[in-house]
């Protein structure tokens, strides 16, 4: 099928390898990639800050461009939740209500697309490390994606998954991280400590924004933790 990719700005600018890995995986599985270069934000920053008009202004071109897409794959649980869960709320009672629902029904977070929609979990990857998995909160609780990333990791050769003791937020939360840096930092410290407790070398996640926060803290504190996106693990050989 033709898969339309939604690559948000932070993946584009900071973590392009994540997007490249997704392209590689999907093409290897025989799908055609459609990448609308002009879409670089789902509008979540404005939405989460209470500026719904501005969020709609950003979301509208997304709705229009993705209207005829067959399936939309989103390289972040958070942006995925925005399109799947929050667009229908954002556009409720507007002319675009039906369009928002239509988009919500066909967009997929990347790991969910592979494991649930395509039913593919073994991508022939090899990653000889002990890892722990961080559930981005939006992916976990808005989209209910506890299982798909784990199903994919289970098939990676040489990978050992050790779970952390809690499903707790890493403290990123978008603007929250800079509006309330002391709280965000404290939350990140708890996360890093719980990850370190597992003895894992890598924290894997399906959300680059969480990883950016965790890595930022770990580096500043001189911790040895490394982070890697799930898609990159899946293209490791």
């Amino acid at each position: 099928m033709t898969v339309t990719l939604f690559i948000p700005c932070f993946v584009d600018l900071l973590y392009p390898r994540v997007a490249v890995s997704i392209v590689e995986i999907l093409e290897r599985l025989g799908h055609k990639i459609d990448f609308p270069e002009e879409l670089n934000c789902c509008g979540q920053p404005a939405f989460n800050s209470g500026y719904w008009d501005e969020a709609r202004a950003v979301a509208l071109p997304v709705l229009r461009r993705l209207k005829n897409a067959e399936a939309v794959v989103i390289a972040s649980g958070s942006c995925g939740a925005m399109q799947k869960v929050f667009y229908p709320q954002l556009f409720a009672g507007t002319k675009q209500e039906a369009e928002a629902k239509n988009l919500a029904a066909k967009c997929w977070e990347f790991s969910d697309f592979l494991a649930t929609k395509l039913g593919v979990t073994d991508l022939g990857a090899r990653f000889l490390h002990k890892v722990t998995f961080h559930d981005g909160c939006h992916g976990l609780r808005e989209l209910g994606l506890k299982k798909p990333p784990r199903a994919l990791l289970a098939k990676v050769r040489g990978l050992e998954l050790v779970e952390m003791k809690e499903e707790v937020c890493c403290g990123f939360g978008g603007a929250f991280a800079v509006k309330f840096p002391m709280i965000s930092t404290a939350m990140g410290e708890v996360k890093c400590a719980q990850a370190a407790e597992t003895g894992a070398e890598y924290i894997v996640s399906n959300d680059s924004s969480c990883l950016m926060h965790i890595q930022g803290l770990a580096d500043k504190q001189g911790m040895k933790l490394k982070v890697i996106h799930l898609a990159e693990v899946l293209t490791s050989r």
Binding site: E37, K179, K220
Partner: peptide
């Protein structure tokens, strides 16, 4: 507010859009 407690991520030498183009 970010850098006080966290290292800053670097903009990649080549963004995904640059790569794609």
């Amino acid at each position: 507010a970010w850098t006080k407690s966290r290292a800053t991520p670097q903009i990649a030498p080549r963004t995904f859009r640059e790569f794609w183009r």
